[in-house]
Simulated scan of single mutants.
Amino acid sequence: MNLGIILTNLNRPDEAEECYLKAINYRNKYPDCYYNLGNCYYNLGNLYLDLKRNDEALRAWEKAVQYKPTHIAAWSNTLVLLDSLQFYQKVLDLGNVALMHNPKSPALHFSIANTLGKLHQFDKAEKHFLEALNFKPDNAVYYSNLGVLYHRWGKLDMAREMYKKALQLDPTIKTTKQNLKKLLNAQRNNTHKSK
């Protein structure tokens, strides 16, 4: 498995895949190696993702969480990829399964929140964003995305507050700066129109 990781980093994907598959084959013979099997499948999934072999990546991560249901990174990668492919219901279904095994994972709550926001299920999305922040209160991206949710929801004062909090934590997030600027400009324009 370690050789597969090195070969992946050296941009030798065919050899890396061969190493991961060998590691999986050897590990299968030992019943106490489920933890490492989960990692092998996780790394193989990442390799497939880099190669744009999305279906194989999803299958590998599915195997990873079969062997290690607490493998948050495999769950998270699965949810992010499914979301990017617009399989929103799959994200929500698998996200709930993932949370049964990892209820305190901010990354999982964050992924579910983003998907719910895209589906305009603002109340549910807010709940998951707040859970993510409860477990990781110093994450600027979580605040920024909660700001986007409030912005879409029409809760502009709360959106502004979240954007500012995100920028306090990480002043380099360009999209947050742009969103805050758009929000402030829109509020100024509305103030001028009402006068």
Rank of each mutant, 00 (worst) to 15 (best):
residue 1 M to A: 11
residue 9 N to E: 15
residue 12 R to W: 00
residue 12 R to S: 11
residue 15 E to L: 14
residue 17 E to M: 12
residue 19 C to L: 06
residue 21 L to N: 09
residue 22 K to V: 01
residue 23 A to Y: 02
residue 24 I to V: 13
residue 25 N to G: 01
residue 26 Y to M: 09
residue 27 R to G: 05
residue 32 D to W: 13
residue 34 Y to N: 15
residue 35 Y to M: 02
residue 35 Y to A: 01
residue 36 N to D: 15
residue 38 G to L: 07
residue 40 C to F: 09
residue 44 L to F: 06
residue 44 L to P: 11
residue 45 G to F: 03
residue 45 G to D: 09
residue 48 Y to F: 15
residue 50 D to G: 13
residue 51 L to M: 12
residue 52 K to I: 09
residue 53 R to P: 02
residue 53 R to M: 12
residue 53 R to H: 13
residue 54 N to I: 15
residue 54 N to W: 11
residue 57 A to C: 10
residue 58 L to Q: 03
residue 59 R to C: 07
residue 61 W to V: 08
residue 62 E to T: 15
residue 68 K to F: 09
residue 69 P to H: 00
residue 70 T to H: 07
residue 72 I to M: 02
residue 78 T to K: 07
residue 78 T to F: 08
residue 81 L to T: 11
residue 84 S to T: 10
residue 84 S to K: 15
residue 87 F to L: 13
residue 88 Y to W: 11
residue 89 Q to D: 15
residue 91 V to D: 06
residue 93 D to T: 14
residue 95 G to Q: 02
residue 97 V to F: 04
residue 98 A to T: 03
residue 105 S to A: 10
residue 107 A to M: 09
residue 110 F to A: 03
residue 111 S to N: 15
residue 113 A to Q: 02
residue 114 N to C: 08
residue 114 N to D: 00
residue 116 L to P: 10
residue 117 G to V: 00
residue 122 F to H: 12
residue 123 D to P: 02
residue 123 D to E: 14
residue 123 D to G: 08
residue 124 K to Q: 13
residue 127 K to Y: 14
residue 131 E to K: 12
residue 132 A to N: 03
residue 132 A to E: 03
residue 133 L to N: 03
residue 133 L to Y: 00
residue 135 F to T: 00
residue 137 P to A: 08
residue 139 N to P: 01
residue 140 A to L: 06
residue 141 V to G: 00
residue 141 V to H: 13
residue 142 Y to Q: 00
residue 142 Y to N: 05
residue 143 Y to G: 02
residue 143 Y to N: 11
residue 144 S to Y: 10
residue 146 L to V: 04
residue 149 L to M: 12
residue 149 L to I: 02
residue 150 Y to I: 08
residue 152 R to L: 12
residue 152 R to D: 07
residue 152 R to N: 11
residue 153 W to I: 01
residue 153 W to Q: 14
residue 155 K to C: 08
residue 156 L to Q: 09
residue 157 D to C: 05
residue 158 M to Q: 15
residue 159 A to M: 08
residue 165 K to Y: 06
residue 165 K to W: 04
residue 167 L to S: 10
residue 169 L to V: 09
residue 169 L to T: 04
residue 170 D to F: 00
residue 170 D to P: 09
residue 171 P to Y: 07
residue 175 T to R: 08
residue 176 T to I: 05
residue 178 Q to A: 09
residue 179 N to E: 06
residue 179 N to T: 04
residue 179 N to G: 04
residue 181 K to V: 01
residue 185 N to C: 11
residue 186 A to I: 07
residue 187 Q to A: 06
residue 190 N to I: 00
residue 191 T to N: 12
residue 193 K to H: 13
residue 194 S to M: 12
residue 194 S to G: 02
residue 195 K to E: 14
residue 195 K to N: 10
